[in-house]
């Protein structure tokens, strides 16, 4: 039981990181960025190259990959979203242009690394573990949960206490009003993409480390689960995404333990479906980004 909770928290904190980035962009733009999963995947590869080929230690490779993810996110905004702003169908058009960009990134990765699963070199992933109560906790799990919590706190601080955060919240509330008040809306959206994609990149590196498995389609299943998480948490709600990410992680682990592994994914999407039908604004739907 204790073991399951630890495993669920660990899986859930990765989902939460991924979904926070997703929901941040949705909160600001009302658009789903389906290239988020491609950034997630590309940055896992970036960490792999930094550690495997350039022989950087993991603690140095991680921030580099996260920064790279941020800049990649800004490029996604510049290419796939900014040209469509102001178009009447920008909602669905943006969805599709981000799918296009995700396809291009995936093609590039398959071209360079091939379609097969890659692994981190031996020794890059800490393997020690310790016992807490009845549960075996690996060093890696502790590090991942700690990083997730630290990034969540950092994001909360950024949105609540900084000038940038105030401006992001203003744009989320109303781009028009923010522009009238002298906020450079395009720059703030760009910054939101940086933060969002940096979180996605962190999730990608941690996911790759956690399962020691990096492949061109690793983002696909996480993408759909990320959708489940942000809907469950309430679209655009940061605390909701964090909570729902952890909840989904726990739910999956307990489904595997009690029902069987083959129904793990069905639970996520079943919950997603029910939430949308019964309570479309999600668990914390009223607490949108402006109250983050």
């Amino acid at each position: 039981m204790g073991q399951q909770i630890v495993n669920g928290l660990f899986l859930g904190s990765i989902y939460a990181l991924f979904a926070l980035g997703y929901t941040l962009v949705f909160g600001v733009l009302d658009i789903l960025n389906l290239a988020h999963q491609a950034v997630f995947m590309v940055c896992a590869y970036a960490a792999l190259v930094l550690v495997g080929h350039l022989h950087l230690p993991m603690f140095a490779a991680f921030p580099v990959a996260v920064l790279l993810g941020g800049f990649l996110g800004m490029a996604v905004d510049r290419i796939a979203f900014r040209p469509l702003r102001g178009r009447s169908d920008s909602n669905i058009a943006g969805l599709i242009s981000s799918i296009a960009l995700a396809t291009i990134l995936e093609a590039a990765v398959v071209q360079v690394f091939g379609p097969d699963v890659e692994r981190f070199p031996f020794g890059a992933v800490p393997t020690r573990s310790l016992k807490i109560g009845g549960a075996v906790v690996s060093e890696l799990q502790i590090v991942i949960i700690a990083i997730a919590i630290a990034m969540l706190l950092g994001l909360t601080w950024l949105l609540r206490r900084t000038r940038l955060g105030r401006r992001i919240r203003a744009v989320a509330e109303s781009p028009k009003a923010a522009r009238v008040l002298g906020v450079d809306v395009d720059r703030i959206i760009s910054a939101s993409f940086f933060v969002s994609s940096a979180l996605g990149a962190a999730a990608g590196v941690l996911f790759g480390l956690a399962f020691n498995n990096v492949s061109p389609d690793m983002g696909r299943s996480v993408e759909l689960k990320g959708l489940a998480v942000i809907v469950l948490g309430g679209m655009g709600s940061m605390p909701g995404a964090a909570l729902a990410g952890v909840a989904l992680g726990l739910l999956e682990v307990f489904t595997v333990a009690w029902v069987g592994s083959s129904y793990r994914d069905a639970v996520a999407f079943g919950v997603l479906f029910l939430v949308l039908v019964l309570r479309p604004r999600g668990l914390l739907g009223s607490a949108a980004l402006r109250e983050a």
Partner: peptide, 26 residues
Amino acid sequence: VLRLKGVFLAIATIGFGEVVRIFFVN
């Protein structure tokens, strides 16, 4: 589901699609 709009409808139908696929897988 059709009470939902735009992106929400898209997500709900993705959810339904995945549940059906997993049902057939099992």
